[in-house]
Design a binder for these strands. Structure first.
Lengths: 214, 214, 214, 214
DNA sequence: AATGAATGAGGGTTCATTCAT
DNA sequence: AATGAATGAACCCTCATTCAT
């Protein structure tokens, strides 16, 4: 009679998924160089050896993590809905959803920061990410166009730049919270503060988009 | 005739400064864990032994780098001048100078990103940074107050949040340039693009500050 | 035809045992601080990397050495036999066996001396040694009791103190042989001298135990 | 006007003495390899550099420490007095004084143990110690001879061996206190225990020396 | 008589990875 | 499909010592 140990498991998919998930957490926590493969393995029910068995090495595992993280985000962006809202409300809504979304996915934002620390050396290998359309950007494009048609928004606006405005703001609050918080003595994650900040970027952007005489 | 070797030198200040400078470049380039002390030493005319002699260790060197970088930035911020400009122009000016300033100090921004990857664990040890006043923020505060007095700007605006808006935007373009550039197929450092982006944040912020009926 | 290298071997038990054995010799020879892990490794067929693989580090290896050495001594003490001897002969026998035993285990005695130089800081971590009974002491206790019952030995004798008397004498000859030998110009390991010394402590102790009117 | 810093001092004798004294404490505390020259210097008001200036190096300093320690002990031994006591009392007295003396000079005993760990490699360089007479041994010799003449002590006794008996016992209690204390759960420095042990060795030795029919 | 600056050589340890079944 | 054993290369750091005044 064979007894199932906690280690031995005949479910490759599950093992792989567990490795990927824990590697995501580990890399997001400590960066690429700062994460040791032992550390990742210790979080799982398998051994370090399996990382090489399933992924080939630390770098490949990191690539899988990165790709997987972006895929998840895209998936979530596809859920965004602003139908039935007038353009101003739609932009505000979009900004707020983006804000919430970023605050909820600290790991992802940290992975992106890490990747930039590495000069984007890894992401550049992921062709799968390159051409995929950016759902959030597409949606924004639509809304901006709608606003312009209705004469509510100024014309000559590059959706990418609006996206940049919103993204910068949302990303910064997560990515730079430690230094900003320390230097200015504020806690950006404080609920009250967060509520204020949540609405701000939408207001700012729409103020600009709707600015009279622009 | 003996020639002086390139190594041996009796100029402690210079040796220390060189180490600090090269360490700054190295850490900004590869992060804390990603930088090897040998690597730093190889950039200088001394040996890695001197890192321990002058700083005590890798971590202390990194701390010195971090502190020095922030000190430099503060110094630069103190040079900012917007006297003689009306509030709207002043904010725009401030935003543009901040923008330029960030783009010119990629190393600093990378160090800040790195520090955030480390959850601010190092900067928290630098009490010298905590209480020091933030020149840029003070200046902004003055301008906002002036605008409010003149009835040009809305009231009830937290200078810190305006600062956050501007900083986010400027920092993001440097810090996230690799992933953003890759994903959207743009080069944020392209001069033409940069010129457009340079003015944008000031316009956006002032549009909001001056929004009628606010 | 490939020949098996001397290094590569798939016998963990043996590798471990070899490391332990050579480490014992090395630590006994040069002390804890005086022994380099490279030095230990060079004595074996593996590399120093294996010390970390099997033991975790220099300190843990030393702890294993210490524990192992004491275990070996205990094992040997369990072989002691004085059955069928009258109490006086038994004590003499015990003293002589202890003497021989110490002279034969110079490494052990040196390890003990080294441990005392370290203020017992390592041994205190070895709970396995604390509560284990001390075979030699138990045997001695029996003999002393027997002698007292037969009216041959004085009463009111603490076996531990008798043990201390004998141990001191035997340990000293090994542990302090270099300074003592140098200062008094004698070689304590000289066979003739040793034969004299071998019997001495038993005689001294029994003279005291059997002292009339005590 | 020159002000005297705490460091700068123009008293070579004092500096040298301080170094010697602190080095003694340091070496006795941590052994030869375990003591770092920085550590010694930090205990004094001078710098590490002075160790090289005054002694030439770590080894020479250790040699000076060793020689100085032995010189001090010899000096103390010369103070021993047993005049006016009968031989039995004299031996007991000598044993007790030796006992006290050892317990009071733990540093010296540790230095001796350390020297033995190093196989007496250093002491062998100190010719000054070799030929010097051993006061304690000479005194013992006299007493033993007196006892033999009076028919109280057995003849054919090597004073060196009696000295060895007493020394072993006294040294062991200090040198091996940590392992012995740990293994047997006793504190050899406990005052009550110490009082018992103090008298023991004299009784044991005299019991043997006076044994009838020897 | 004394010192600040500098250093070569090694110290213990950890890293991602491969061997061999 | 999975794994225990082994490892080379490098990593950060510390040691006793010397240079140069």
């Amino acid at each position: 009679m064979k007894h199932t140990t906690e280690r031995q498991q005949r479910d490759p998919e599950r093992t792989r998924a567990e490795l990927l998930s824990e590697a995501t957490a580990a890399f997001a926590e400590s960066g690429y160089s700062g994460t040791r493969v032992d550390e990742i393995a210790e979080r799982t029910r398998t051994t370090k050896r399996m990382i090489y068995y399933y992924f080939g090495g630390k770098e490949q595992l990191y690539l899988a993590v990165l790709e997987n993280a972006y895929r998840g985000i895209r998936e979530a962006e596809r859920q965004l809905e602003v139908d039935g809202l007038d353009p101003v409300q739609a932009v505000r809504r979009l900004a707020e959803l983006t804000y919430d979304h970023h605050l909820e996915h600290g790991d992802f934002i940290r992975l992106v920061a890490i990747e930039n620390i590495h000069h984007g050396r890894f992401i550049r290998q992921l062709d799968s990410l390159r051409d995929a359309n950016q759902p959030a950007l597409g949606l924004l494009e639509e809304v901006l166009e709608r606003g312009r048609e209705q004469g509510v928004f100024r014309g000559n606006v590059d959706p990418l730049e609006v996206h940049l405005l919103i993204s910068s703001y949302c990303v910064f609050q997560v990515a730079n919270q430690h230094t900003f918080g320390f230097l200015f003595g504020v806690d950006l994650r404080d609920p009250e503060r967060r509520d204020r900040l949540r609405g701000l970027i939408g207001e700012v952007v729409t103020a600009w988009l709707t600015e009279p005489g622009a």
